[in-house]
Amino acid sequence: MSFSPTSAPLISLRGVRKSFGHLEVLRGIDMDIRKGEVVAIIGPSGSGKSTILRTINGLTPINEGSIRVGDIEVSDPKLDKVKLRHRVGMVFQQYNLFPHRTVLQNVAMAPIQVLKERREQVEERARRLLAEMRLPDKADAYPGELSGGQQQRVAIARALCMEPEVILFDEVTAALDPEMVKEVLAAVRKVAEGGVTCILVTHEMGFAREAADHIYFTDRGVIVEHAAPQVFFTEASDPRTKEFLSKVL
């Protein structure tokens, strides 16, 4: 809980708009996220939650507005993409591990190949992260040999190995069997406790309530409500929020 209104936000979105063809998925998004915060974005399917995440690390270019991460202007055409992706990591719903590489290589390859860091140093860090993700004996396994929950924890270690300030979690438990959801959420919590700023798109309301500092509720491309979880889940004011909560809680 590092909410201090005086410090400048690490990430800020202003009037962000995005259309896919004729479909406008983001219709003016404003967000401010401070360093070390855990932010959960929730809302009905197709409300633009994942698109918000993907605009923050530049995977989805925006049509209007501005996004700033630290001193990086994301929509700048001369954007240094490596610098942005060094600062902002991402974990996907489908894990997206590289199947032809071992777990250790998956975790270590980008810092070595993209950031040009020393191999021994990166591999040592990768092994430590795998141990933290409770996968110390899986370094030489291939992703295909692991369960979904294990693969997702490798994906989290892979994001952490870039030593980012922010990690974007895009419905990271949505593809998992119920018994594996817990272990992955525990891993996400560990990341948050380590001081990394976390932005999650999630359907796990219990987790959002208990782990997040802020909840953003999106519907049809706009942020309908933004509050601390204890306020959000008990005193939601907007009828759309109420309707959504009545369905999911």
Binding site: N57, L59, K81, V82, R85, H86, G89, M90, F92, Q94, N96, L97, F98, M109, A110, Q113, V114, L115, R158, M162
Partner: peptide, 20 residues
Amino acid sequence: GQWEAAEALGYSRRATLFRI
């Protein structure tokens, strides 16, 4: 998803093609 994951890790399109 392989292209996206590589892009999110800072790989260029060409590096993604040849390395991943």
